[in-house]
Design a protein around this nucleic acid. Structure first.
Length: 669
RNA sequence: GCCGGGGUAGCUCAGCUGGUAGAGCAGCUGAUUCGUAAUCAGCAGGUCAGGGGUUCAAGUCCCCUCCUCGGCUCCA
């Protein structure tokens, strides 16, 4: 999500991952790195055809005519096309099927439950259910036990087609109001139904597009993870349901690997490491706003400085703009109309009588309007274009209290924000330069990335000719870059097409950070123009762009990506010098000074603790290098070096050590 | 904002069905001068998130507020 775009972010919780990237995070990370053979145990139904039934009109649903083998195969081939790989398709079937198994189990335990939807999602599945009471962890265990029984029974997933009235009657009789709503939303005359028959003669019948695996026995390696609230159709005005999340994998090994990955992610959680490493803190007096402690501020500031330097070299003008603006600015940009609830604002005159019209001021949630003012403050020539403005000013957004989370969802943050004012025919070049730039930036951190190109949405501003031009320019730049990218038709902003970049971290999780958005609307709203070579006024195109995105979020990703083990060039503390005993204090001091003189961030642990204890403390801080100084080193004028990642490196001369660390401390960016 | 977990010493956590708060680490003081992931002893540290209520008695039960965590359109 572009935290600096002009789009009117609606007041709703964030979508976590772009749908077109769903498969990205589903890749299992096995400790050995190799993927186990899986698919022999998860057979999708196309090869072996499950019995299907078609209900004849007017007949009771159970007595349908069997769906022909050909039809079933055809259907599954069709379903498969929507997936990028056989693997993705089979996982989808497995996950969706396990959602059914869970629903079946829930219905056994809570006969009054009412089922909403239960899709397959990244890494698992969920089912939204209206339950008579709230369920807790003990209930999840009970549901799991029931699911295991169903798996053991190895029930078939029988596919049937019913006419809609039969289906309506069936679900109405069972009080399944959500299913009725879903049926009413289906345009076809027939609806698709899946049926599971239990050994005891009971049945589980669900409205479902499918496809499914053949039998419940395939859904063996699952685990229910958590339960939370979710609104029917995602709308806070609707009834809130209980959403039960689970995960499922074709093999035990993959399930274990996934659970291991969850554990690993928990260990790397930036909130936990942020406290452990004293990078930042929060206080209830400033919900959603981080306090950057010295170690964290070091990283923040380093990223900030490197980006300024980089962008200055790219021809950007670095500016600083006001924090508080008259609400008129936000009316001009359109934020006030769409986004007022997410802004912090207040009357200029606090003593104004009730009803008295005073000036309203607002903290900026985005930088773009003030950049529009800068561009518009002078008469601009085409010779000045592309005119690039970079601004790292603090932004404030009044996020929903329930949406706040660590550094990733905050109320105050800064971006490596910039706006590029250019002529229409310069868009392609600028985008190409940006792609080159972000490739360099992400490369410096060892982060991979994926690119998604989003084109015109149904509801949009501007004429189609302009959209044609913009989309063509962006796409050409993408093609020229040689990058793989995915197309997301209709996912663009209402004011222009965009390119979103998803970072892939060490745990193969995707995070949206960078974005490049073309905007044809904002310059018009601000009445901007430049004088062209033809001596006529032209409206510039604006590119909204960010590479880190917000510093807060990017640092959170870095913390988790590195698991707190920052490389020397980023680490707040590069070396800790420690003495074995007081006898070597003097030499320790000298070594510390030598490192400091070389510009290395070093701390001298001259306490009287034992060396083993000092090493342990240092490990907990994840300092990359330890220089151990004892009487041997004192006599030889050396240091004994221990690396965080490689262990004891033996002794070397002070000069060699300083040179080694200095080399690693050079900014990679 | 909504649903559901949490909030006990700086940190991690214990405290059963109500009977007046505890451990480890960190801190301080002292001893110890030690060779690659925890030296010993002593001391100090809490309005049990905040407020209200029930009770002879509340960390524990009830209500309100704040903060925090998991979620809240990956659409049969």
């Amino acid at each position: 999500m572009l935290r600096g775009g002009v789009g009117p972010p609606t007041r709703r919780p964030p979508r976590r991952l772009h749908p077109s990237l769903r498969s990205l995070a589903t890749r299992p990370v096995t400790p050995g790195g190799r993927r186990p053979p899986t698919w022999d145990r998860c057979r999708a139904p196309a090869r072996a055809v499950p019995p299907g039934y078609r209900a004849a009109p007017g007949r009771p649903p159970r007595r349908g005519d069997p769906m022909s083998e050909h039809e079933v195969v055809e259907e599954h081939e069709k379903g498969r096309e929507a997936f990028e790989s056989e693997e993705a398709y089979r996982l989808h079937c497995l996950r969706h099927s396990t959602a059914h198994v869970m629903a079946q189990a829930v219905m056994r335990l809570f006969p009054d439950a009412s089922l909403a939807i239960g899709p397959a999602i990244e890494d698992g599945f969920y089912y939204d259910i209206d339950l008579p009471r709230t369920v807790g962890p003990e209930d999840l265990e009970a549901i799991e036990r029931e699911m295991k029984r169903i798996v053991k029974e190895n029930q078939r997933f029988e596919h049937e087609r019913w006419d809609r009235e039969t289906a309506r009657a069936f679900f109405a009789e069972r009080g399944q109001a959500f299913k009725l709503e879903l049926i009413d939303g289906i345009p076809d005359d027939e609806v698709s139904i899946y049926r599971n028959r239990a050994k005891d003669g009971s049945e589980f019948v669900d409205l479902c597009r499918g496809p499914h695996v053949m039998r419940t026995g395939q859904c063996k390696h699952f685990k229910l993870l958590r339960v939370s609230g979710a609104y029917w159709r995602g709308d806070a005005k609707n009834k809130q349901l209980q959403r039960i999340y689970g995960t499922v994998w074709p093999t035990r090994k993959e399930l274990d690997a996934y659970l291991y990955r969850l554990e690993e992610a928990k260990k790397r959680d930036h909130r936990r490491l942020g406290q452990q490493l004293e990078l930042f803190m929060f206080h209830e007096y400033a919900p959603g706003s981080a306090f950057w402690l010295p170690a964290g501020e070091h990283i923040y500031n380093l990223l900030s400085q490197r980006m300024r330097t980089l962008l200055a070299a790219e021809g950007y003008h670095v500016v600083k703009t006001p924090m508080v603006f008259d609400k008129k600015l936000w009316e001009t940009s359109g934020h006030w109309q769409h986004y007022k609830d997410d802004m912090f604002w207040f009357p200029e005159d606090h003593d104004a009588e009730d009803g008295e019209e005073g000036r309203i001021l607002a903290l900026k949630p985005m930088n773009c309007p003030s950049h529009m003012l800068i561009f518009g403050a002078q008469r601009r020539s085409y010779r000045e274009l592309p005119y690039r403005i970079h601004d790292q000013g603090a932004l404030h957004r009044n996020e929903l209290s329930g949406a706040l989370s660590g550094l990733t969802r905050v109320r105050q943050f800064r971006q490596d924000d910039a706006h590029i004012f250019c002529a229409e025919d310069q868009v392609g070049d600028e985008v190409a330069r940006l792609i080159d730039l972000l490739d360099r930036v992400y490369g410096a951190f060892g982060l991979g990335y994926r690119v998604v190109f989003s084109t015109r949405p149904e509801e949009r501003l501007g004429d189609d000719a302009l959209w044609d031009k913009a989309e063509a320019a962006l796409e050409k730049a993408l093609q020229d870059s040689g990058l793989d990218y995915k197309l997301a038709p209709g996912d663009g902003a209402f004011y222009g097409p965009k390119i979103d970049i998803y970072l892939v971290d060490a745990l193969e999780r995707a995070h949206q950070c960078a974005t490049i958005q073309a905007d044809f609307q904002l310059p018009r709203r601000f009445g901007l123009s430049y004088v062209g070579a033809d001596n006529q006024p032209h409206v510039p195109v604006v590119l909204h762009r960010a590479i880190y995105g917000s510093f807060e979020r990017f640092i959170a990703i870095l913390i988790e990506h590195y698991a707190g083990r920052f490389p020397v060039w980023l680490a707040p503390e590069a070396v800790r010098v420690m003495t074995v005993s007081e006898k070597s204090l003097e030499h320790g001091r000298k070594v510390t000074e030598a490192l400091r003189a070389a510009g290395i961030r070093v701390h001298f642990d001259d306490s009287d603790a034992k060396i083993g204890y000092k090493i342990k403390m240092c490990h907990e801080r994840k300092v990359p290098y330890m220089a151990i100084i004892g009487e041997k080193e004192l006599a030889a004028g050396t240091v004994s070096v221990r690396s965080r990642d490689e262990g004891d490196l033996g002794s070397m001369t002070v000069e060699a050590f300083v040179a080694r660390v200095a080399e690693e401390a050079k900014p990679r960016l």
